[in-house]
């Protein structure tokens, strides 16, 4: 596995941030929401490793706890999208006919909307919460996995081992679950991994605009919200969350590339 550098690098980065998220309480003594009036906008120091924000909250702590939110939203949203996409896509591909035509038209229609603005619009009119964000991103990203699994299954369907499964009496459900999906999920997995990076990006964007995760719950995006007003005086509020987002997304991209090579 070491030979596959992308896979190794990607996995390393993601393990790093996952550890950060899980071990947050042990990595810092400060509460992420703890306001400290006497230490506003302090640059990185021995006491506050990454500095403090305009309310005196420890930035490092907010980033560690923020990892929890950003990573979980990313993974859950992609989970929703993938499950939905695989469900619709595989049924459409397997049964074909009108079902397939309808689904593909639905996909085309959904793809007409510029996704980010669609999400923005929905977020603007709904209650901002972690649950809602996961749903919104999930329900607007199922098209890609659906198309991927559909094209894989369409080509697999005619392969002899599927015909053989039919010949020995396997039911449609058995064929889909035991024969088609295990062989078709490869590209979907790669796409999902990339998608997590994308979902984190979307969540950060929403939170940055104030439509996502609401403070005091920290997310990398809403930490950046402050950076708008403090850019000149407190570079650390922009740089550190920005770096976290950048490196995490890179990590998922590397992982996806590594998986792609492995699946071949």
């Amino acid at each position: 596995m070491i030979g596959n550098k992308s896979l190794f690098l990607g996995a390393a980065i993601i393990i790093f941030f996952t550890f950060m998220a899980l071990a947050a309480p042990f990595l810092t003594e400060y509460e992420p929401a703890l306001i400290d009036g006497s230490n506003l906008l302090m640059p990185p120091s021995a006491r506050h490793l990454l500095g403090t924000d305009s309310l005196g909250r420890d930035l490092a702590s907010r980033i560690f706890y923020g990892a929890r939110i950003s990573l979980s939203i990313g993974i859950l949203a992609v989970g929703v999208a993938t499950v939905l996409g695989v469900f619709f896509g595989s049924l459409a591909a397997f049964y074909g006919g009108i079902l397939d035509s309808l689904l593909m038209r639905l996909v085309d229609i959904m793809l007409c909307f510029p996704t980010f603005y669609l999400i923005l619009g929905i977020a603007a009119i709904t209650q901002p919460s972690v649950f809602n964000i996961v749903l919104i991103i999930g329900l607007t990203s199922w098209m890609q996995p659906a198309r991927l699994i559909r094209s894989e299954i369409l080509s697999l369907k005619e392969r002899e081992f599927i015909q053989a499964a039919k010949a020995i009496g396997a039911s449609n459900m058995r064929i889909i679950l035991r024969h088609l999906l295990p062989n078709a999920l490869g590209p979907v997995l790669v796409n999902a991994t990339l998608g997590i990076g994308g979902a984190i990006m979307v969540e950060s964007g929403l939170s940055f605009l104030g439509l996502g995760v609401q403070p005091p719950i920290p997310s990398w995006g809403n930490i950046l919200m402050e950076s708008k007003s403090t850019l000149g005086v407190a570079w650390w509020i922009t740089v550190f969350p920005g770096l976290a987002i950048l490196i995490t997304i890179l990590g998922f991209n590397f992982l996806a590339e590594g998986l792609k090579k492995k699946i071949g």
């Binding site: 392969r159 002899e160 081992f161 015909q163 053989a164 499964a165 020995i168 035991r178 295990p182 062989n183």
Partner: peptide, 13 residues
């Protein structure tokens, strides 16, 4: 039952 021509494609990899 049936045996197909291509032994490389008749088994689920």
């Amino acid at each position: 039952q049936i045996i197909f021509q291509n032994p490389y494609a008749s088994l689920n990899p």
